[in-house]
Amino acid sequence: MATWGDLAAYVHDTYDVISENEDEIRILFNFEQFDEDDERTQVIILVREVLDRLHEWVQIASPVGLASDVDLHAFLTEIGNSTIACGAAIMGDHVVLRHSLPLADLDIHEFTEPLSLLAGTADRLEETFFGGDNY
């Protein structure tokens, strides 16, 4: 993969795109269904970022809940103890998990594996700290 356009084409072929603009694609990540009564999904936002006006990156982010609804100390402690491929941030009113990757020499597995890991982590933390599957 070399450019945002290449990544966007791959995402359209592989994932359920729910919205898009020039530098952002939102997908609905579907987990394998283990229980017919518990079909879980996670909204993932892919954003094109340009570092130093030269280098294209993709930021993978997923909202998990409202910052005002969580004990941030407990939440961040859990992330520190149980995650390897994402960090947490507050963006607007929401707590999000995110991970960024350079696009120039990106192998597809360097994108899909962190995406899956981030989606699963976001889903687990959303359930644990916010009590549902709202995002």
Rank of each mutant, 00 (worst) to 15 (best):
S62K: 02
C86N: 04
D105Y: 06
I84G: 08
L66T: 04
C86Y: 03
V58S: 06
V95T: 06
A88G: 10
F111V: 07
D105R: 00
S62R: 04
L46C: 12
E110W: 14
V47R: 11
R98K: 14
H55R: 13
T77S: 08
N81D: 15
L51E: 10
I79N: 04
A67F: 06
V50W: 11
D107E: 12
M91D: 09
V96R: 08
G65V: 10
A104G: 11
G120Y: 11
E113A: 11
S116Q: 05
E49N: 08
V50L: 10
V47T: 09
L72F: 11
W57K: 03
L101Y: 07
A74S: 13
F75H: 01
V58D: 03
L72M: 04
P63S: 02
L66C: 04
S82W: 03
E113S: 13
L66D: 03
T83D: 13
L117M: 15
F111M: 02
R98L: 15
V58Y: 00
E78K: 01
H55D: 11
H99M: 06
R53K: 07
G80A: 05
S116Y: 09
D123Q: 14
F111S: 01
E113T: 13
V96W: 02
L76A: 13
I108M: 13
D71K: 04
G80L: 07
I90H: 04
N81Q: 12
L66E: 06
P102A: 07
D69W: 14
H94F: 10
I84F: 15
S62T: 13
G65C: 06
V64Q: 06
L115G: 05
T121Q: 08
I108N: 14
D69H: 11
T121M: 04
D123S: 07
L118D: 02
A104Y: 06
L103Q: 01
L46F: 10
G65K: 03
G120K: 02
S62D: 02
T83P: 02
T83S: 08
N81R: 03
A119T: 03
D69P: 01
C86T: 14
A61Q: 12
L117Q: 05
D93H: 03
L72C: 03
D71M: 10
E110S: 08
H94R: 10
D107A: 10
T112V: 15
